[in-house]
Amino acid sequence: MSDTPAGVVDLLGVLAYAELTAFLRLAEDAATLAPSLNDRAALSGLAVAEYAHFRLLRDRLSWLGADPEEAMAPFVSSLDDWHAQTRPGDWLEALVKAYVGTGIAGDFYREAARHVDPETRKLVHEVLAEEVRSEFVVERVRAALAENPQLTGRLALWARRMVGEALSQGHRMAAARPDLALLLVSAASATPSPEPDAETGPAAGREGPPVRGLDSDLVEIGRLFARLTEEHGKRMAALGLVPGP
């Protein structure tokens, strides 16, 4: 309702626009890049699922008393830029983007959802489920690599470029939306950290949380992005691609 934290509205807004654009891009790729009718139908099915996710998020925003269009608006430029900079040139690039690019974005949103209310967290995990997408993409990409192993280097380079763009956009988004960044900092700082000293935390025996500052928050966000990169490596391995150094 009106007392919904701004960070929750930001999270649902960015995720809603991400799902809407995923629907549009997957539908376009299905129509223009799919090599067979079966592939076109399968990718179109994924696109339909993305639109269903968008509707769930839109309805949740409305129920919370937020205007869905206003909630999505701050993220249009960043997400549109990412899609423009990572437009696939062929079918296999489209598949890798659907799995790797969307996957690392999903990791970003899941991290932010660790410190929101249970209903919102459940919805975020529901719309980011990857099982069907993963099975479809991994099967197609692995089959293509088995037929032509020389594709590995090109697709691995494509995936690294995509993720680099995604992390760059994520950094800018966090800097521009402090309430969303606060969710990410909270998620990052949930991992164990060294005992505070005289400069970074309370004195021995004094109650209260460690004193945090901008530098500390940026360090924690850096660690969070390192975890996202690690998950990217796991997806690369699932596809049969060789992660970069």
Rank of each mutant, 00 (worst) to 15 (best):
S44W: 06
A143N: 10
T32F: 06
A34G: 02
K122N: 12
L46N: 04
L61Q: 02
R55C: 11
V132M: 08
G45N: 02
S78V: 12
G101E: 04
V48A: 15
A52R: 15
V137H: 02
P88M: 03
H115M: 08
A34R: 01
F136Q: 11
A84Y: 04
P74I: 07
G45Y: 01
G89R: 04
D81P: 07
L92N: 07
A41Q: 14
S77G: 09
S44C: 09
T120Y: 04
Y109K: 03
A49I: 03
L79D: 05
A143I: 00
D80M: 11
E131A: 13
A98P: 00
A34L: 00
P74E: 07
S44M: 14
L123W: 03
G106C: 07
T32P: 00
S62Y: 07
E139W: 05
W63L: 12
R114E: 15
P88E: 02
P118N: 13
L92S: 05
G101W: 00
L128I: 04
L64I: 01
S134P: 01
A42V: 05
A31S: 13
A49E: 14
L128C: 12
A144V: 00
E135G: 10
S44T: 15
R87C: 03
P88V: 00
S44N: 12
S62W: 08
E111F: 11
P74S: 08
A146D: 15
H125I: 03
A105Q: 12
A113T: 03
A52H: 13
Q85S: 14
G106T: 05
F108A: 09
L92K: 03
D29S: 09
E131N: 10
A73W: 06
V100Y: 04
W63V: 15
I104L: 11
A31I: 00
L95E: 04
L95K: 07
V116W: 08
E69W: 13
E28S: 11
E135K: 12
R114Y: 06
F75C: 05
L145P: 01
F136W: 10
G65L: 04
V100N: 08
D90A: 07
A47D: 01
R60Q: 13
P74C: 09
G65I: 01
K97T: 10
T86C: 05
K97S: 12
S78A: 15
V127R: 08
S78L: 10
Y109D: 03
G103K: 02
K122W: 12
R58M: 12
A143H: 10
L56C: 07
G106N: 14
V116E: 06
N38V: 10
L43Y: 04
G45P: 00
V100I: 14
G89T: 00
R133D: 02
R58W: 09
